[in-house]
């Protein structure tokens, strides 16, 4: 990964300073595509921690999860040009990038199946972090499917640079990466601060966000398919209705995050005392140390069973 970044650091600038715009795009996306996967892979990790805890059941297929993560990471390096189907690549190039791109659907599907299997016949409770993690599984799956649709090159000729793309990457990054971060914050906040999060407020934040985020981004699928290009400040009249719906959802979702700040600050200031274990079935070394975590941990090496 470091090697790629170095690669990014060097050729990125020279290509931009030079002159060939398509080469620039190749180099940018050679960096840019792994970049978006860097954002989503830790999210997979977070969700794989939270779901087993609240399902009270071990993560299903741990080793296949690891293989899936590794193959997604590997594939992410060889599919960069699927952002560029319309730049006039040779047909052979387009075919290759199409095949490689839809291949990513396989390990991603394995992950979703594994989470499902983890929850299957578990003994679930639905604290705030679990709600966020479940929302992640549902909504990220939707984002993954639209990603698959765009991976098919001839169809992408229509989807490319429309609001369909905007809807896709917001489903992946907002309901994917951002939801996972929020889930992680709710999950580990008791460990960080020593106080439990107010469950009622956390749940309000969850439902408020989960509903408004769909109002915000789901209509954008319709807009994109109906032919609204992205990054335009003004649009023709047939797009008016769904844009208004989307805007309303957007304002609501924005407000929800200000509410999130209130919840976090309230937890830092005080609240019900958290136990060391915090969650009934949480596993891992971080749950063996006191809550809040002391400034220096593990000055003597812990015993790993």
């Amino acid at each position: 990964m470091m090697l790629t970044d170095r690669h990014f650091g060097t050729s990125f600038f020279s290509a931009a300073g030079g002159g060939d715009p398509v080469l620039f795009q190749h180099v940018f996306w050679f960096f840019g595509h792994p970049e978006v996967y860097i954002m989503i892979l830790p999210a997979f990790g977070v969700v794989s921690q939270i779901i087993p805890t609240f399902a009270r059941k071990k993560l299903f297929g741990y080793s296949s999860m690891v293989y899936a993560t590794a193959s997604i990471a590997f594939l992410s390096f060889i599919v960069w040009a699927h952002h560029m189907f319309t730049t006039g690549m040779p047909v052979a190039g387009e075919l290759y990038f199409m095949y490689a791109t839809i291949m990513i659907a396989v390990p991603t599907a394995v992950k979703v199946f594994n989470w499902t299997a983890t929850m299957w016949r578990g003994s679930m409770t639905f604290e705030t972090p679990m709600l966020w993690a479940i929302a992640f599984v549902f909504l990220f799956t939707l984002g993954g499917f639209t990603g698959l649709m765009m991976g098919v090159a001839p169809a992408d000729m229509q989807y490319h640079d429309t609001y369909f793309i905007v809807a896709h990457f917001h489903y992946v990054l907002v309901t994917g990466a951002l939801f996972a971060i929020i889930a992680a914050v709710y999950y580990w906040l008791p460990k960080w601060t020593g106080h439990m999060v107010d469950e009622r407020l956390g749940k309000i934040h969850f439902w408020w966000s989960a509903i408004s985020v769909n109002v915000l981004f789901f209509p954008q699928h319709f807009l994109g398919l109906a032919g609204m290009p992205r990054r335009i400040p003004d649009y023709s009249l047939q797009f008016a209705d769904w844009n208004m719906v989307s805007s309303l959802g957007g304002f609501a979702f924005g407000l929800a995050q200000v509410f999130f700040m209130y919840v976090v600050i309230k937890t830092i200031k005080g609240g019900e005392k958290a136990s060391d274990q915090v969650w009934e079935a949480a596993e891992g070394l971080e749950w063996t140390i006191p809550s809040p975590a002391p400034y220096h941990t593990f000055e003597t090496a812990p015993e790993v069973r």
């Binding site: 008016a240 844009n243 805007s247 304002f251």
Partner: peptide
């Protein structure tokens, strides 16, 4: 929010 406000209406 600025973006969505602009796109609120044509």
């Amino acid at each position: 929010m600025v973006i969505r406000a602009e796109l609120f209406q044509p």
